[in-house]
């Protein structure tokens, strides 16, 4: 599994395509209403999946652990939402926390972790 992180609009999805040859049809885009569907070659917007978890009383790490076989060869994309002030709303705080824990879990299991900055990949070691 390869993990791509970075702020909004930094070219994460574009990099998944150029670096790993992912096609548009192979990308599943998570939303706060639908959560995640495992099995796609590339899962994008994992932060939205984490928000779905918060809203539905689920633990994102537990769900990923359970489905490990289904994503361990995938390209996973998560937005870095960790640099702002502590959010005022309790659910937004829980969202940030859940996304952070998921990122930490995934990055510890990734073959490569890449951070995108203004469209430029930075390999994290």
């Amino acid at each position: 599994m390869d993990l791509i992180i970075g702020g909004a609009y930094q070219g994460k999805r574009e990099y998944a395509k150029t670096r790993f040859g992912v096609e548009d049809g192979e990308i599943y885009t998570c939303t706060e209403d639908t959560g995640v569907a495992f099995g796609a070659r590339c899962l994008d917007r994992l932060e939205e999946f984490a928000l779905w978890c918060v809203r539905n009383g689920q633990d994102p790490v537990a769900i990923f652990r359970e489905h490990r076989q289904e994503w361990q060869d995938s390209v996973l994309i998560c937005q870095d939402i960790f640099c702002g002030v502590v959010p005022l709303g309790a659910d937004m705080r829980a969202w940030r926390e859940a996304t952070g824990r998921l990122c930490a879990y995934l990055s510890a299991r990734a073959e490569t972790v890449t951070r995108m900055f203004c469209g430029i990949p930075q390999r994290l070691v």
Binding site: A8, Y9, I81, F82, C83, M92, F117, C118, G119
Partner: peptide, 27 residues
């Protein structure tokens, strides 16, 4: 681009536009 906040449409447009310029300049 890295905070946990749901912005209004104007702010989001501004963020996306600035990122487009940043990426153009980075290239």
């Amino acid at each position: 681009y890295s905070d946990a906040f749901r912005y209004d449409a104007y702010t989001e447009l501004y963020r996306a536009s600035l990122a487009a310029l940043d990426r153009f300049l980075a290239q």
